[in-house]
Nucleic acid binder design. Structure first.
Lengths: 256, 256
DNA sequence: TGCTGTTGTTGCACTCTGTGCAACGACCGT
DNA sequence: ACGGTCGTTGCACAGAGTGCAACAACAGCA
């Protein structure tokens, strides 16, 4: 809509691929150097880009701060986290939380099994939307027209032989998911990784988020993983209850 | 520089405080509703803002993705993390990593002691620049004019009785830090929290980052904490060495 | 049911802001 | 000292952004 802003914002994903100098930015935007310069300066003033010693631009740290504040506004995440941690405690596997937004599904939280590190490293990563259990849950709950529109707009990469092949198959899978109230991804993304997911619902019953448990084939087979389904669903329901306000938060959650 | 982009970007921190509707945004920007609408639409198209059911706008999840990619470009963080984790392993306290950028100091990594959770929750948070050990280290290394300019531009909030009171005191403290090569914060931010920090240096000797160990008074006194200084400095030096390329990375760090 | 106030959206004329050009300047390597 | 590369500046033109006013959608209320 607004040409100038549009151009400025296109710079950000461009720089996300790596640092670039003025000319490269101008070339990739298809504008004159001086135009790119002014856009970059404006972005710079707002801390969105940073100019390193070699004068090349890269993304600025203000993005961190904004993303962090954005995360704080997602109160599902805050409410869900202790439940996810408890789930991880009991089953030991990787636990994810994801939300749907504008045709994309994004991880917004993760608890990793063994190594206590770098949880944040995946947060914000777009989910493999055609195969992930959490994606199926979130899409399954969309109103029919939007669901169909999204499904038909997607690409269906063949990550493995068991990946969802096309829109028709996906819509059928979504119908199943919607009916049974939970979802799986058995080797659809990575051959050796299985995953089960369950929905978190708001007061109105709409699916506001989805959580999942993932484990490599060699550790637990699909059968064993499915044994965790009741536990997973209880967790998701507990989050739903607290999110809907039907259950008071377990402890004081006083903020400062 | 660019009015339109400037206005658009001012919307983001505004929304970071919480969701807002069109009128509120227009009012706080000081522009007409229709102008605000077009800016918000453009931001929306880029996923920077999201429109929730009640039609109010909030920050969009694209910010997550961008921040994550920005983080991946900060290779100091990647190199430092294993060292920080090892340090945490040995001393058990909270470990931070921070960088300086355009007059601000930001945490870019954190390893927490006890509870394995929500490491990311503080990442991106601006540091209490007048008192934090990491901030002192990073500012101490700035060229004289910039250091003075920054110091005099700052506010000096009296978090506690031991907070740095004004620019003169801060500059003096920075001189000490620069000379001794490490920094402390003994109750300058929170009365009961002590902290020691050490610099990570690049090939040219410039301080590119700073790491620190923080612990509450009740667990270890300042004396005990200072006993960790050699370990902390060895850690910082190890990061510096690896970052400068004088030491090969300890194991294979193959990416994909 | 109809009225009124609120809030989001659209079309349009005006002009201010962004644009590209060309010239300049800083820097680097040879 | 010289040419080449890349960032920066000033300027004239017009295209893009702006605010206004009217419209539409909706909610609350009598």
């Amino acid at each position: 809509m607004s040409q100038t802003v549009d151009r400025a914002l296109r710079i950000l994903p461009l720089l996300a691929e790596g640092p670039a100098n003025l000319e490269q930015v101008a070339a990739r935007l298809g504008v004159h150097k001086s135009t790119a310069l002014r856009l970059l300066r404006t972005l710079h003033e707002h801390g969105m880009v940073y100019r390193q010693q070699d004068q090349r631009y890269r993304l600025g740290t203000r993005l961190f701060a904004l993303a962090q504040q954005a995360a704080e506004n997602l109160d599902v995440r805050e409410i869900a986290h202790p439940h996810l941690a408890a789930l991880n405690e009991r089953c030991g596997h990787t636990v994810h939380l994801a939300v749907y937004e504008d045709g994309e599904v994004l991880y917004i939280d993760k608890v990793e099994s063994r190594y206590p590190v770098r949880m944040y490293s995946r947060i914000g990563k777009p989910v493999a939307i055609t195969v992930a259990a959490v994606a199926k849950l979130l899409l399954a709950d969309l109103p029919e027209p939007e669901r169909r529109a999204v499904a038909e707009r997607l690409d269906y990469p063949a990550y493995t032989a068991r990946s969802t092949p096309n829109a028709a198959a996906y819509l059928k899978e979504l119908a199943t998911v919607r009916e049974q109230g939970w979802a799986t991804d058995f080797g659809g993304h990575e051959e050796s990784i299985n995953c089960i997911g369950a929905p978190v619902r708001g007061t109105d019953g709409r699916t506001v988020a989805a959580c999942s448990v993932s484990a490599p084939n060699v550790v637990v087979g699909t059968g064993e993983l499915l044994e965790l389904l009741p536990l997973l669903r209880r967790t998701a329901d507990a989050i739903s209850a607290e999110y809907s306000g039907t259950t008071p938060p377990p402890l004081q959650k006083a903020n400062s």
